[in-house]
């Protein structure tokens, strides 16, 4: 398979993907609302969403809140032969249960061959050709293959799992935990404390996942812990910066304004709080983080609250 590839979203990640696909010899269509004059050889830039339907492999590299609207509009031009992959860390909160973006894509388009790409892949690493790995969650092994083909000449291993929900939830939780790391670093928490927060937080995330039908092991793989380790190693992802802003006392509303809709962690914090309240699940670390990022707890209070918890 070496047909054209469409990429929706002209952000850093979108363009990094476009370059990677280009290097693998694929024709690339990039759809973006801001039509820049970024003409590159072999890349067609368009403002017309319908143009993206010319490729049968379409990457969604738009922020999660926009995935639904973009998918609905594009969906009118797609059929069962199109394959969709999204790269967003995020879910759409639907009352107290999360709706994942693969679910959104399924409901808004006629497509069924859908996947989620996750793991410690950031735009800069892709662009610089760092060796790295990602994981594709899909019911359809051919989607894993298709993503692998796109990164054929990249030093990037693509693994596959059919635990789609696990991949999407893990990746969403990583966004929140990455913010916690940025926050902790800026508040002067030591490595051991951060490691505790990360590990226990990921365990709780895995428990939520299992409750919703995902597999715990997915949270401890590339999509979860693996991704989080890259944040620890300082891969420069925006969530770290958000955490720092919070630690500096910037209010949630301002953070949202400054960094924009790109940060899924804030929304994640909100639905975790709702989810815990509804199900009565014991999620001490995640709930404390949720409170911090909703502006209800300060760092010292958070730490006290954390240490006052019985270890479960």
């Amino acid at each position: 398979m070496s047909g054209p590839v469409s990429i929706l979203g002209g952000g850093d990640f979108g363009w990094a993907l476009a370059d990677a696909a280009r290097r693998s010899g694929r024709e690339v269509i990039v759809w973006t609302r801001r039509a820049q004059e970024q003409a590159r050889e072999g890349v067609t830039v368009t403002e017309t969403l319908a143009d993206a339907a010319a490729a049968d492999l379409v990457f969604f590299a738009v922020p999660s809140p926009y995935v639904g609207a973009v998918a609905r509009e594009l969906g009118a031009h797609l059929d069962g032969s199109h394959r969709l992959v999204h790269i967003s860390r995020g879910v759409v909160a639907d009352k107290h249960t999360p709706r994942t973006l693969t679910q959104v894509l399924r409901e808004t388009t006629p497509c069924r061959r859908i996947g989620a790409l996750a793991g410690p892949i950031v735009a800069r690493a892709l662009a610089e050709g760092d060796a790295s790995a990602g994981v594709v969650g899909s019911r359809f092994p051919e989607i894993v293959e298709a993503v692998r083909d796109v990164f054929a000449v990249q030093r990037l291993d693509v693994f596959g799992t059919d635990d789609v929900l696990g991949v999407e939830l893990a990746s969403t939780m990583v966004s929140l935990l990455s913010m916690a790391i940025g926050y902790g670093l800026a508040s002067g928490l030591g490595p051991a404390t951060l490691a505790m927060v990360a590990t226990r937080g990921m365990n709780e995330a895995a428990r939520i996942g299992e409750g919703l039908g995902a597999r715990a092991e997915t949270f401890h793989g590339l999509a979860g812990l693996g991704d989080l380790l890259a944040a620890f190693a300082g891969d420069g992802r925006p969530e770290l910066e958000v955490g720092r802003l919070f630690a500096a006392g910037v209010t949630p509303a301002e953070v949202d304004k400054q960094v924009g809709a790109r940060i899924e962690g804030l929304r994640t914090a909100r639905w975790i709080a709702k989810y815990a309240a509804h199900t009565g699940a014991r999620l001490p670390v995640l709930q404390i983080l949720a409170d911090v990022f909703r502006g209800r707890l300060r760092a010292e209070q958070a730490l006290d609250a954390l240490m006052a918890q019985e270890v479960s």
């Binding site: 049968d56 032969s81 359809f140 092994p141």
Partner: peptide
């Protein structure tokens, strides 16, 4: 389709414009 358009169910088993056998799919 979700937008109410008639689509060919055959496209779901196609790759590159023709039907392909794929048990896993």
């Amino acid at each position: 389709s979700p937008s109410g358009r008639a689509i060919d169910p055959g496209t779901y088993v196609q790759q590159g414009g023709r039907p392909v056998a794929d048990e896993l799919r």
